[in-house]
């Protein structure tokens, strides 16, 4: 759900950016964070709690709460609320604390 009309702000249509989310080809727009692109698609569940695996979503939007951490291009614990979306990114839901990566 994206805002089309707003009394104070103007949201110009920007370039589409393709990316992969849990194996599916999806898209967001230039200027999106990974989290905002997923949210606009209706994806609210971004991560899981470590022990009970409870679903977790966007909470602070300032890179502080870790509730939106995901695996991005093989790198775990990426704060998707403060990471800009880039063309071709591979984004995965993270199910553990994160594995070492190259």
């Amino acid at each position: 759900m994206r805002i089309t009309e707003h009394p104070i702000l103007t949201f110009e249509k920007k370039a589409k950016l393709q990316f992969v989310f849990d194996g599916n080809e999806v898209y967001g727009y230039e200027g999106d964070t990974i989290a905002s692109a997923l949210h606009a698609m209706g994806v609210k569940k971004l991560s899981h709690s470590i022990h009970l695996k409870r679903p977790r979503g966007f909470y602070c939007a300032i890179g502080n709460c870790a509730s939106c951490n995901m695996i991005v291009d093989e790198k775990p614990n990426v704060r998707t609320c403060v990471t800009l979306l880039k063309e071709g990114m591979v984004v995965k839901t993270q199910l553990n604390k994160g594995d070492l990566y190259d």
Partner: peptide
């Protein structure tokens, strides 16, 4: 505040 960011910065 996070919702404010989502709406007013990202337009979502």
């Amino acid at each position: 505040g996070a919702v404010q960011t989502l709406m007013n910065v990202n337009g979502v």
